[in-house]
Design a protein around this nucleic acid. Structure first.
Length: 451
RNA sequence: GUCAGGAUGGCUGAGCGGUAAGGCGCACGCCUGGAAAGCGUGUUCCCUCACGGGAUCCAGGGUUCGAAUCCCUGUCCUGACGCCA
């Protein structure tokens, strides 16, 4: 959320930001400024009336204590009149204030000056590529993860759809084991980097969803728990960022670095048709999330460190990837600046021209004080008397299904087994490759999957 | 789930119908050769160029000329009882 005063003093910057985000011409800003102006006038009137009323009330108290009842009665009558007048004004002022608040909650963050201006993902700027020097040799008949998952019987989308619905899947046997290994590896790497682990609650309140910026705009993307003011968390960012809400942190505590492994739930409403095959876009997935609470003057340094910390996992897994800086049009609602990390896998979306594709596995963002204002996250700077808003940042470190996809495709052997990256082997009892197992059930026999 | 008690500023803690004590911490100033102690001022949010004013005692309603204080509803905490991996 932007501060009201900031909006008043920088309306042109905010308008420009909305334009650059492709969210219209910034008419909203003009409208909000008008409401704000009206509210300020009314607020002054209310304050004056209250001042009047307070004076009369004090007088009544004095008169009564002196026993001058007749004069007191007169003053009471006057006060009653003021009350009626005030109630009407207050009602109007309150309505304006609410409209203003609502508008502010729906206003996106202002992109940082270093963010490239652009329409959509084609205007994103590649920052670096890593790990392309010694690419593995790939088998000619390399198989996409969704087919390989069935063949090895480690990913079962059919039965996930049966028990729950499409977009949900079972991991099985070595698949499940691989996922656990990845989680442990990531938690170990990030602990080493200084992130204190949290296991947060999975359901979160509306207030928390508002605090990080999911609400009010994106209510339809979240799963609601019937009969409660609770939602399944779409990312650990929500419970973790809100952990210190309405608190004042100490200067010496900062920066606070947390990591959390949680499942994530997303309805992905209106996302049909994009990457529907396999487990690239699903309704429930696991993720290790990194969250950083920091002083305002060092948040951009912290952002660079954060990306590096997330990248470390891919370096250890020896997977090729790139880092890109999102342009203004591709930036998420709450973010001031975002780097995406994308893994490269040898299988493309286009069957004729199979030259690989990019999988987004992490988004590292600096929200500046946008979330801090919404969630009430402050700290007391040294040598200052009053509290100030901190800056929040987060990054996935990393989203698991897509890392799994990359491993199944990038580390695929000619015989259809999957090489397990060296760094993961200790986490899998020394296992060197995934060879799969016989599927269970008659349907497997009918489909010829059982040898 | 039932019953009882509670929620006050950065923290602590009084007030229980007449308009938010005190302490601690922190900041600034005075004092001092320097420091400690001591003394003074300040310490939340909003409006105002400013003077100044308003709001705020968990949230929302109500009673009242006037509510931190009384009444109702909700949320959360604490304890007891019950239930239960």
């Amino acid at each position: 959320m932007l501060a009201r005063q900031y909006l008043r003093e920088n309306s042109e910057i905010v308008k420009e930001a909305i334009k650059n985000r492709n969210m219209g011409e910034g008419e909203v800003v003009v409208k909000l400024l008008q409401i704000d102006e009206k509210w300020r006038v009314m607020k002054a009137q209310c304050d004056d009336l209250r001042h009047e009323r307070n004076k009369v009330s004090t007088l009544i108290g004095n008169l009564k204590s002196k026993g001058e009842n007749e004069a007191a009665e007169k003053a009471i009558a006057q006060s009653s009149g003021l009350k009626v007048e005030l109630e009407k004004l207050e009602e109007n002022a309150k309505a304006l204030e609410e409209e203003l608040k609502k508008g502010l909650l729906e206003l996106p963050n202002v992109p940082h000056e270093s963010v490239p201006t652009g329409m959509d993902e084609s205007d994103n700027v590649e920052i670096r590529r890593v790990g392309f020097e010694n690419l593995r040799e790939f088998p000619e008949d390399i198989v996409p993860h969704y087919d390989l998952g069935v063949r090895l019987d480690i990913i079962d989308e059919m039965r996930g759809a049966k028990t729950t619905g499409s977009g949900f899947y079972f991991l099985k046997g070595e698949g499940a084991r691989l996922e656990h290994a990845l989680i442990s590896l990531m938690l170990d790497i990030h602990r080493e980097q200084g992130y204190i682990e949290l296991i947060p609650p999975i359901p979160v309140s509306s207030a928390s969803m508002t605090g990080t910026g999911q609400f009010p705009k994106f209510v339809n993307d979240a799963y609601k728990i019937e009969g409660e003011d609770l939602w399944l968390c779409p990312t650990a960012e929500v419970p973790v960022t809100n952990m210190y809400s309405e608190e004042i942190l100490l200067d010496e505590d900062l920066p606070i670095k947390h990591q959390a492994y949680t499942p994530n739930f997303r309805r992905e409403a209106g996302e049909h048709g994009t990457e529907t095959r396999g487990i690239v876009r699903v309704h429930q997935f696991n993720k290790v999330e990194l969250v950083n609470f920091t002083r305002p003057d060092s948040s951009y340094e912290q952002l660079e460190l954060l990306v590096n910390d997330a990248e470390e996992v891919l370096k250890k897994l020896q997977l090729p990837y790139r880092v890109i800086s999102l342009c203004t049009g591709d930036l998420t609602f709450s973010s001031a600046k975002t780097y995406d990390i994308e893994i490269w896998t040898p299988i493309g979306n286009n069957e004729e021209k199979n030259d690989g594709r990019w999988l987004e596995v992490s988004s590292a963002s600096n929200f500046e004080d946008f979330q801090a204002r919404r969630a009430g996250l402050r700290y007391r700077p040294k040598r200052h008397e009053s509290a100030d808003y901190i800056h929040t940042l987060n990054a996935s470190g990393l989203a698991l299904p897509r890392v799994m996809v990359a491993i199944l495709e990038y580390y695929q052997n000619a015989d259809g087994t999957v090489e397990i990256p060296q760094v993961l082997r200790p986490y899998m009892g020394g296992l060197e490759r995934i060879e799969g197992s016989d599927p269970i059930g008659e349907s497997a026999v009918g489909a010829g999957l059982r040898n």
